Structure formats: C-alpha cells, structure tokens
Computed example of a mutant assay.
Amino acid sequence: MTSRWRRLSDRLAGKTEPEPLWAEGVPDHIDVPIRDWLYEVLRNYDMASPVAVRLKLPSRILKSRDPYNELANLDDRMNPMLRLEVIDATLGCVQQALQGTHWQHRQTALSYARQLEGILREGDSAFTVSEDGSRLERRMDETLHATYDKAVEAGASKTETAADHLRAAFTEAYGIKPDPSAAYSRAIKAVEAVANPLFLPNAPEPTLGKVRAHLEQGGHKYEMVISDKTGAPADIDAVVAMVSLLWHGQRDRHEGGPTSAPVTLEAAETAVHTAAILVHWISNGSIRRK
C-alpha cells in the first residue's frame, strides 16, 4: 500500500485522517486535467461518435465544429454524473475498438487509463479506473481491494467461473451505476462455483442453500487450518455463519414473501466482501476434511 501525499500544513499539524473523497461528478480542482485528458483520448482514437451514441447525447454535439471539444467540456449542473459517464463511456469504447489489435496499441490505451487514474487519485475522487482500464468504479479501501484481489486469484486457481462471478459482482456493486441485486446474485454464484464441487460433488442441483445445510449437519467432518484457543484445529462455525449470512441476506431472491425486500447497496457491498473471503478460504484449503 502506498502512502498518500499530504499538504505541508497538514503534516506540520500532525493530521493523519484521510481527505474526504469527492463523491459527485468531477470536482473543480481536477476539471482542467480531466478535460485535457478527455480531449486527447477522444481525438486520438476518434471516439466522439461512439461515445455520443452510447450515451444517447444530443445530435448538436456531433454537428459541432469540434465534437471532441464539445464532449470534453460537456457538463450539466442538473446531472453531475454526466462528466463521469462521458469518461466511463470513453474508456469502454476505446477498449472495445482495440480488441484484437496489436498489444502495443492496447498498452498505449492502458497507459492513458493509468494517467486518468493518477488524476482521480490525486484529486481525491471517489471514483477510480478499473484494473483493465475499461470503466470507472467507485473507489474501495485499499485493504479491502487487496482482499478482493487475493480472492479472485484464489478462485481462478480452482475455476475461472468463480473469478468471473466475483469480478462481475465487484463491478455491479462499485460501478458508477451500481446494481445491488445483480451484485448480490453474482456474489452467491462466486461462492457456489467453488463450494458446490467441494461439498456437494454428486448433487444434481447444488445451491449455496444446500451447501449451508450440508455444513450445518456435517460440520463435525470438517475443520479449519487455523487453531482455536486450545491449539486444536478450529471448527467451521464461522464458515457456516458466513454462508448463512450470505444465503439469508438475499431478500429479493423470491417475490411476495413477508420478508421480501430490495437489496440495498450496503448489503450488496457486504455480500461481495463476504463472498470474497469465502472464495479465498475454500479455494486455498483453509477448510478441510478431518
């Protein structure tokens, strides 16, 4: 984890708490570098038309004398997210246009994405560029992000499906237009991808709910690699509790029930991180048969 720069007055005052993140739009202090970055990328990759079409923007933009400049300066006080959507669409359109091209072209595009990430980070934006440079995401605490990265790596070592579901869950939870329901559903699928083959290898229709029941009834057959207070391998009560939390917390799985409710963004984020821990534990052998 890299240390963050602090202004001189804060260092002299011994200030240690992080600066608050700017959660809406592009703040004024990074407006100019963002505008310059957008203009250069839009022009160099001829992305005015794809971005305008993707965002369904007014035709006056493409009819203007300089559509790249129009897009780079596009702002709407009634919709502070519009600038971010232009950036997000630009990243996505560039990556799509470069699919199948020489790796040097893709590396150049990735360097542009990293340049943008530097601007957003130094400007304390609540948004960051995704690892593959294809989109914007809401910024996550670096420690939590490291846990997520480890889980994706561990999940991929067992099945790429788990890693794919976990990446999708993260994107749905932390994208600029989050979808909590989709994020929660993908989080459960990520755990199922590694848990079902391990705990229910012969089940015709395995689910996380059946994994939970199996572990509740047969928990005595398993143990953790970590020790309990006696020095013996710990039981799997913590695993059962986390699986139960994840399974029961998806209140939008079925409609019409007395406890049915939409999944909140906070619940979806918690589900993603719970799933990441479970995927990591199951994939790297932290839970084993006695």
Rank of each mutant, 00 (worst) to 15 (best):
T2C: 07
R4V: 02
W5M: 07
W5D: 09
R11S: 15
L12T: 03
E17S: 03
P18V: 08
L21M: 13
V26A: 05
P27I: 02
D28A: 12
W37H: 03
R43S: 15
A48E: 10
S49N: 09
L62Y: 14
P67Q: 06
Y68S: 10
Y68L: 04
N79V: 10
M81D: 15
E85T: 12
D88T: 01
T90K: 01
G92Y: 01
G100H: 13
T101S: 12
T101I: 10
S111N: 12
S111E: 14
Q115P: 03
E117P: 02
E122N: 03
S125A: 07
R135T: 01
R138D: 11
E142C: 10
E142T: 11
H145Q: 14
V152L: 09
V152I: 11
A154R: 04
T159Q: 00
A162I: 00
H165Y: 13
A168G: 09
A168F: 07
Y174V: 00
I176Q: 07
I176K: 09
K177V: 12
K177L: 12
P180T: 04
S181D: 12
A182L: 02
S185E: 08
K189D: 08
V191A: 02
E192D: 02
P201W: 11
K210A: 02
K210E: 07
A213S: 14
A213Y: 08
H214V: 00
L215R: 01
L215W: 01
G218W: 10
H220K: 08
Y222R: 04
I226P: 05
S227H: 10
D228I: 07
T230W: 06
D235Q: 09
V239K: 02
V240H: 11
L245P: 04
L246S: 05
H248C: 11
H248V: 09
G257Q: 00
V263P: 00
T274G: 12
W281K: 03
I282D: 03
S286M: 09
S286D: 08
R288N: 05
